[in-house]
Design a protein around this nucleic acid. Sequence first.
DNA 1: GAGTTTACGTCAGCCTTGTTGACTTTCCAA
DNA 2: TTGGAAAGTCAACAAGGCTGACGTAAACTC
Lengths: 170, 170
Amino acid sequence: MADGRGTSSHSGENLLFLTDEQLRQAIEAMFFAYRGFTADPDRILVDMAYGRAHHRAIHFINRAPGTTVNNLLGLLGVTKQSLNRVLRTLIADGLVESQVGKSDKRERHLYLTEAGRALEQTLSDAQRVRMRSAFREAGPEAVAGFRSVLETMMDPEMRHSYQRLKENSG
Amino acid sequence: MADGRGTSSHSGENLLFLTDEQLRQAIEAMFFAYRGFTADPDRILVDMAYGRAHHRAIHFINRAPGTTVNNLLGLLGVTKQSLNRVLRTLIADGLVESQVGKSDKRERHLYLTEAGRALEQTLSDAQRVRMRSAFREAGPEAVAGFRSVLETMMDPEMRHSYQRLKENSG
DNA sequence: GAGTTTACGTCAGCCTTGTTGACTTTCCAA
DNA sequence: TTGGAAAGTCAACAAGGCTGACGTAAACTC
């Protein structure tokens, strides 16, 4: 593992893409790419009183309208206190609406308001511009590989959430 | 752009992978995957008094031994005050060594100590385990696509840093 | 019907990691 | 020799994580 090889080559395959050096490069690629990934929406958010946490909440509420607070906690992977702070400001600012559940009145169902949808559109447009040009440049096969690796990299629980969101949104 | 299409299809190509829905899914994949990407080293770091910022500093000092503080600032994309706080603790704990430059004595050249290298190894081993199994599962073509998309997603400046690191380390 | 669990909100306090601004020391270069 | 770049330090602050404790209402269970 420390000899520069990803694995002992007990098969005939070419496993050079699994060497430690290749993996190190991939780790750096993830780091640098994620910076690019968040850069554009971040620039928009600083002008408002919001941060990346607000963006994430808005993204998933838009993606799963009517989601409960508990469900959102699972998607975001933060504590309820942390989410609540963000949600409170979004509700106070009229970007998110909280509705008491009909069947279960303990639950709050979350929806974006018109203003919330507008901000979501602005942010995701900005983020998609970069994604789209990267995808176009890299081509369909590369994109398929990109998504395949990302999916296998997730924790199983996250992968499950990811798949459910995919299915519920075409 | 808001009609669910990534682009008007003025060519004969199949551009379905550029639809807004596909891009949204990719955005979510990046978010969930990055969580997985950082999860393993994070678990190790909480037991020590360190965080992700320390990990990043250690990673790049290991990767580019003798790098200057200024150079490291560019790689990490933070302020010198923020980096300095991290660096100070690493130096105090004997994981990083700071050497005054020979030609330019204003510069500080940074190196990992033996203990620093040991921690780096522990952290990157943990991170590579997940990477390696994801790569193995997805296969070489997928990995090539993965890296290609990540590279085109970086800001040009970051891409340049990334390429230089690659060249200087085989 | 009483007791327990669940969902949510909130207060208080803490930590990491980012920021700006001001200031000093060192030292290179015009 | 003087201006400015590089490095470091101090102070103050903010975002956004965290834990722990507590309260309320609703739902569930026995």
